[in-house]
Simulated scan of single mutants.
Amino acid sequence: MTFSQLEIFVLVAELKGFTSAASRLSITQSAVSHAIKALESELGVELINRHQSTLELTAIGEQLLLRARAILGLTETMRQEASDARGMKRGTLRIGSFGPTSSVKLLPLILDAYRKEYPGIEVHVDEGRDREVVQWLQDRRIDVGFAVLPDERFDTFALAEDQMVALVPAAHPLAAKADISLKELAPGPFIMTEAGSAQLVGNLFNAAKLIPNTRYRSTQLISTLSLVERGDGVTILAEQALPCVTGETGYVKRPLRPRVKRIIGLAVLDERQVSPAAQAFIKIALRLKRQGVLKQTESG
C-alpha cells in the first residue's frame, strides 16, 4: 500500500469518478484504475461498486475512506512541520466555507493576508451548506472550516458576531413593526434557508415550540430575496449575509424579538493535530479580528 494509491482512492471517492480523478492528477484513467485495483488486491476487498451507473463505495470502502483521509492528513502535517522549519515555503491548506458571511465577507480578507505571508501554501476552498462543512470536518476532507458557534464537536475560534433578522415584503403588515417575533413569522408562508444558518433557524423554532408554515426551501440568497420581494413569503437570515444596497428594495429587515445573535468562527477537528498551515490561517484570522478588520454588526 502506498500513499499514492491512497491519494488516488480518496480523489476518486470525492470526485465520484475515475476520469475526473485522472484529470485532476494529470495522469491516465488506466493509471487510476490500476492503482485502485492494486489497493483492492492488497487489502483483499472490493472498495468500489463498479456495476453501479454512478460510482459508489462499498461499506468497507466508506470505512477505508475515513482512514485514508486521516493517514494522508497526518502525512501532510508531517510534511508541513518539516516545511515550517524551513519557513513554511510549501504545503496545502483545505478550507470549508458557507454562505455570504464567510465566503464573501470573512474568507477573502483572511486569505489576502494569508497569501501575502505564505505564498507557497496551496489553498483549496470548498463551498457548501453549513451542515456540509461540518460533515467535511468530521470526514477530514478539510483542515479548517467556518461554522456557526458554539459547536461542542470541534475546537473553535470565534471571529465575528451579527444578529438574525426577519425579512418581510415591503407591503406586508409586519413591515410596520419595529421588531418581529417568531410567533408572528411562523404562519408564513415561510421561506426556509438551506444555506448558512439552516440549523440555527430550525433550532430557534424548535426552542419556541413553533412549526413554521414552510412553503419554500432555498439554498441561494438571491433566490430567497427574490421570493420575499415578490411577496411569496417571509424568512429569517443573518444580517451580515445580506447584500449592501443603497436604494429601495421590495423587502424590509427587522430584528427578531427577542434579539438573536449569531457567532461565526473557525472550527477544527482537534486543535492538537492541526497542521502548521491551518494553525497559521487561524492565527492570522484571530489577528485580523483583534485589529478590527473583520467587521461585526451591532446586535442591540
Score class of each variant (00 low, 15 high):
L109K: 11
C244L: 12
G250A: 08
D84K: 12
T219Y: 14
L39M: 13
E122H: 15
R257Y: 10
L64N: 03
G99P: 01
R69L: 04
A158H: 03
D139W: 15
H51P: 00
L210R: 10
T54H: 09
S103K: 02
A113D: 09
F157V: 01
S4N: 06
A31W: 01
Q199F: 10
A31R: 01
I211D: 10
P100I: 00
I48K: 08
G73C: 05
E81S: 11
N213Y: 14
D130R: 10
A166M: 07
K253I: 09
Q52D: 12
R115H: 13
A158I: 00
T75V: 07
L39K: 02
L109M: 08
R129Y: 14
V201M: 02
S299A: 12
D232R: 14
Y118W: 12
E81F: 01
P243Q: 06
V201I: 12
L269E: 08
T249P: 01
R153S: 05
R94E: 07
P276W: 11
A31P: 02
I142N: 03
R272V: 04
Q52T: 10
A22T: 10
I27L: 03
I121G: 08
T235Q: 02
E127Q: 14
R140V: 06
K261A: 12
R215D: 06
I264E: 05
L25K: 08
A70S: 11
H34C: 06
S197L: 08
L65V: 05
Q63C: 00
F9I: 00
F281C: 08
A207H: 13
A186T: 15
I284R: 09
M192N: 10
Q52M: 11
L137G: 07
L72G: 03
L72Y: 10
A22G: 02
D112F: 13
G17H: 03
L43V: 12
E42G: 07
V45K: 15
I264K: 06
Q163K: 09
L55K: 07
E127F: 05
T2M: 06
L72W: 05
L6Q: 03
E132C: 10
T214L: 05
E194N: 11
V134H: 14
E271C: 04
T224R: 02
R259T: 09
A13L: 02
A158T: 02
A207M: 11
I142A: 07
A160G: 00
Q296G: 08
L39Y: 11
P258L: 05
T235G: 05
R290C: 07
L256G: 01
L6F: 02
A207P: 03
L137S: 06
V125Y: 11
A208C: 10
A278H: 03
E117R: 15
A208M: 10
E161F: 01
L159I: 02
A31Y: 00
A22Y: 08
D126N: 13
P173D: 11
L242Q: 02
L107E: 04
L74E: 12
R129E: 15
L182D: 04
S30L: 08
N206P: 01
Q291K: 15
K177V: 04
Q63G: 03
R259L: 04
Q273N: 08
E127G: 06
A178E: 15
A238G: 14
R131W: 14
S41G: 08
L64Y: 07
L227P: 00
